[in-house]
Amino acid sequence: MTNPTLPPVLYVPTSRPGPGGEEAHVELRRTGDGRTVLMAYSALDRLVSCCGEGQAWVLIGTEHLPKIHERLPYDVIFLDTDIPEDLRHPV
């Protein structure tokens, strides 16, 4: 499951860790047609620009995408895509 058009590392949006130290989790989104999307960003400044300053994230190597897909199946990856303001996490 390697894709030569993806950079070697990606910034992936996550939930924020919980107050009791609970682990953060990769966030998946849904498209209007019902597909499950893994959002990914090629640079940290793009993640902040597209998701807002309140977005938590994790840096992953693209070689780990199959592991993420096993645990959290998704249909498609959207790269460097804006999230509408009303769906962003607050700062």
Rank of each mutant, 00 (worst) to 15 (best):
D75W: 02
L47V: 02
G18N: 06
E53D: 13
L38F: 01
L87I: 04
G18E: 08
H69P: 06
T14V: 02
D80K: 01
R46G: 00
T36N: 02
P84H: 11
P17R: 11
D86E: 15
I83S: 01
L72T: 05
E70K: 13
A24G: 02
P19T: 15
E22F: 02
T14F: 03
G32H: 15
L79K: 03
V58Y: 03
V58R: 10
V9K: 14
M1G: 12
N3R: 08
L65M: 03
P84W: 03
R46S: 07
G18I: 06
D86T: 11
D33K: 13
A56Y: 13
D86R: 15
S15F: 00
L28N: 05
E70H: 12
D33G: 10
H89K: 11
K67V: 14
I68Y: 01
G52Q: 04
E27R: 15
L59I: 11
P17Y: 09
E23Y: 07
E23D: 12
V91F: 10
L6M: 07
R35G: 01
S15A: 07
L38S: 08
P19W: 09
Y74R: 04
R35V: 04
G61E: 15
G20I: 01
P90C: 08
Y11K: 02
G54A: 04
T5F: 10
G21M: 06
L38P: 09
F78R: 12
P73R: 06
Y41V: 09
V48L: 11
T36G: 03
L87S: 09
M39W: 05
P17K: 08
Y74Q: 01
T81C: 10
V12S: 02
L87R: 14
A43V: 07
E23W: 03
S42Q: 08
L59D: 06
M1I: 07
R35T: 07
D80Y: 00
R71F: 07
E85Q: 13
V12N: 00
A56W: 14
L79N: 08
L87Y: 11
D75L: 02
L6K: 08
P73L: 04
P19C: 11
L87Q: 13
D82N: 13
P8R: 14
N3P: 03
M1F: 09
L38R: 06
P13D: 04
R88V: 00
G20Y: 03
T36P: 02
R30L: 14
P90W: 11
L47Q: 06
P90Y: 03
P73Q: 11
A43G: 12
H25A: 15
E70M: 11
L44E: 15
L65N: 07
V37D: 01
V37Y: 04
P8G: 10
G52S: 09
G18M: 03
E27F: 04
A24M: 01
A43N: 05
L65T: 02
L65R: 07
E53A: 13
L65C: 04
T2C: 12
R88D: 00
D75T: 09
A56N: 14
Y74T: 06
H89W: 10
D45P: 10
C51F: 08
E70P: 00
V26K: 01
P8C: 07
P4W: 06
G32P: 14
Q55K: 02
D75H: 12
E63F: 06
P4L: 12
A56M: 04
G61H: 13
S49E: 14
V26I: 15
G54H: 09
T81P: 00
